[in-house]
Design a protein around this nucleic acid. Structure first.
Lengths: 128, 128
DNA sequence: CTCTATGCAAAAACTTTGCAGGGAT
DNA sequence: ATCCCTGCAAAGTTTTTGCATAGAG
């Protein structure tokens, strides 16, 4: 994946911080929480906020809000739904096909909150 | 709707502030934003935060997060989905029946982000 | 070389906590 | 009368802004 190109094509400069941000999101199999993202990147907090905002407004990344105040980020790819487990807080991407229809509305994203199969069976093993 | 009873049955005292909060949510046809709620209630901000937290943890009210950082509240009723228009920021409740099934998962709430029919037709009339 | 992005520090916005008085049961 | 709730003020957090320097194109 050529992030440099992606960044530049959105009128932004391909700096180290920005490449790091996108790489981190790309390397993760699931959406990354705000906190985790902020932690793992060594850029200044001001830069972090500015870059996240820039990428989001350019549509390079997307954010999902969970039931509590958590916010998760991922690279913008094909539209798909998200499932957030209220017990273990994991976010899963749900690739679906027939789901994006609702009379007269344009659907951009869907978030489903609930409890995943794992957590329903074993009440142990809670992820923070 | 007997809010006094609702509040007391959750081990809380039926104070004016709390009754106001629930009445306001009840009188609104759609979920109310955090800001609007905070504005329209004349209780102290500390009290506001404490009461919202109390009601939410008791399951009396529910909150929905929109794509940006907005948070919306409603009285907890029967499970239903929400549609948030990314253009006009309106939140609609979607009563659905066959929607709450997903292999092995327990669904608690669903949020759909997109653009409503109105906004798709007329690009004017954006609500704040 | 130009103009944007970054880091630092300071400010603003938002949320939580402590405590004494007021109100509900 | 008791114990919870409220308001105020102060402390903590999170996010934004201003500005000089560093870095990308």
């Amino acid at each position: 994946m050529n992030f440099e190109k992606v960044i530049k094509s959105n009128g932004l400069k391909a700096t180290r911080s920005r490449l790091h941000l996108l790489e981190l999101l790309h390397d993760s199999s699931h959406p990354v929480s705000y906190e985790e993202l902020k932690e793992q990147l060594q850029m200044d907090k001001a830069t972090f906020y500015r870059n996240v905002a820039a990428f989001e407004s350019e549509g390079v990344i997307k954010s999902i809000e969970s039931h509590d105040k958590r916010r998760y980020f991922e690279l913008a790819t094909t539209p798909h739904a998200h499932f957030i487990c209220l017990t273990c807080n994991r976010v899963e991407c749900i690739e679906s096909t027939g789901m994006f229809l609702l009379r007269g509305y344009e659907i951009e994203s869907i978030t489903i909150n609930g409890r995943c199969a794992q957590c329903l069976n074993q009440t142990t093993g809670v992820h923070s």
